[in-house]
Computed example of a mutant assay.
Amino acid sequence: MNTTQLPVDIISRQMIQPPRLDVYYPELAGLVDSHIQRRLNERVRKQVTTMIRKQTYNEQTTITGGFEIKNNQREVISLTNSHYSYSGGAHGITIQRSLTMNVRDGRIYTLRDLFKPNVNYQERLNELISKQIEERNLPILNEFQGITANQYFYIADKALVLYFQLYELVPYAWGFPYFVISLFDIQDLLLEDGALGRMSY
């Protein structure tokens, strides 16, 4: 495995249209391959602009946003973009999206890409989430039906973090429900050279 790529430089860029749009987003720099760098940065910008459109940006809506880098090691970048929009009423709404990317080959990972082929990773993850819901006594709005094929996730060091949007699982006041799954609880299911499997080296 080629591990010559050092942790990636992250530049903060601002998308601003006063007075109602003020969004910061990450830009990758210093990659070995400039074509991959450009493609990944385009993917980040596409996610951010899609989020703004989803929040129906117009003259009545104010959107502020930022990002967090969750992982920047072993050629894997995992990040979140979060935007808060307000159009009047009691409170606004925040949405969050994430990207997990390989800076060596330019791959954008889906949740399925982290696991060996033909393993029932969803069943294991559902069991671990259900256990956390019970242990944390979360006031779920509806019975937990399990994760979806395009479940929101990011990688944070030696953990897989699955999360749900506001109102999707718990009341608004509880914020985003995050479920931290230790690499060691699912290690037998992981691709050794996958985005999460790499974190065990």
Rank of each mutant, 00 (worst) to 15 (best):
residue 160 L to S: 06
residue 137 N to S: 13
residue 152 Y to N: 13
residue 163 Y to G: 06
residue 176 F to V: 09
residue 133 I to R: 06
residue 133 I to E: 11
residue 147 I to W: 09
residue 172 Y to I: 10
residue 149 A to W: 03
residue 179 F to R: 00
residue 177 P to G: 04
residue 128 L to Y: 06
residue 147 I to R: 11
residue 135 E to P: 02
residue 176 F to R: 04
residue 152 Y to M: 09
residue 157 D to G: 02
residue 152 Y to T: 03
residue 170 V to I: 14
residue 164 F to I: 01
residue 117 P to G: 09
residue 125 L to Q: 07
residue 179 F to T: 00
residue 124 R to N: 06
residue 146 G to R: 11
residue 118 N to K: 15
residue 139 P to I: 02
residue 172 Y to C: 03
residue 129 I to W: 10
residue 114 L to T: 02
residue 148 T to N: 12
residue 175 G to A: 08
residue 144 F to I: 04
residue 163 Y to S: 04
residue 123 E to Q: 14
residue 152 Y to C: 05
residue 122 Q to G: 01
residue 148 T to M: 07
residue 121 Y to V: 03
residue 126 N to E: 08
residue 156 A to S: 14
residue 116 K to G: 03
residue 176 F to P: 09
residue 126 N to D: 15
residue 150 N to P: 01
residue 136 R to A: 04
residue 162 L to Y: 05
residue 151 Q to I: 04
residue 128 L to G: 07
residue 118 N to F: 12
residue 141 L to I: 15
residue 146 G to E: 11
residue 160 L to G: 08
residue 176 F to Y: 14
residue 113 D to P: 06
residue 134 E to W: 02
residue 150 N to G: 06
residue 148 T to K: 14
residue 142 N to H: 15
residue 139 P to W: 11
residue 124 R to D: 10
residue 114 L to R: 07
residue 134 E to N: 11
residue 129 I to F: 11
residue 121 Y to N: 10
residue 127 E to T: 13
residue 143 E to D: 13
residue 171 P to A: 00
residue 129 I to T: 05
residue 119 V to L: 07
residue 147 I to E: 13
residue 132 Q to G: 07
